[in-house]
């Protein structure tokens, strides 16, 4: 089966959203993350984010200042049309 393109929208439970995103790479699907709320300064969140960074997954943010590629909400909406699955978490 062809690889899938999956978007994970990271909202409240950020550590689990990052953990899940890492796991979704196992079958070589493309996983991109869209961060809609500021990163929580929690140990578990930052630890799971490290796993995301190690895999070089794309992480976009709809707000400025997180050191991540910034997208407006409109840009994000347009990009989401390209994905097979959209997983808000």
């Amino acid at each position: 089966m062809d690889s899938k393109k999956i978007a994970v929208i990271v909202r409240d439970r950020q550590a689990e959203a990052f953990r899940m995103s890492v796991g979704l790479t196992i079958l070589e699907d493309t996983i991109d993350l869209f961060l809609c709320r500021p990163l929580k300064a929690e140990e578990e969140v930052l630890a799971q984010l490290e796993g995301v960074k190690e895999l070089d997954l794309k992480v976009f943010a709809t707000f400025q200042g997180a050191g991540l590629e910034h997208l407006t909400a409109e840009d994000m909406a347009e990009r989401l049309l390209d994905y097979d699955h959209i997983l808000p978490y």
Binding site: K4, I6, M20, G23, L24, L27, D29, H85, Y89
Partner: peptide, 18 residues
């Protein structure tokens, strides 16, 4: 299982809801 099973579900499904 593990997140492997989630990867399989997402890979094999035509639609996924949460």
């Amino acid at each position: 299982g593990s997140q492997y099973n989630n990867a399989v579900m997402n890979h094999d499904s035509d639609r996924v809801i949460i």
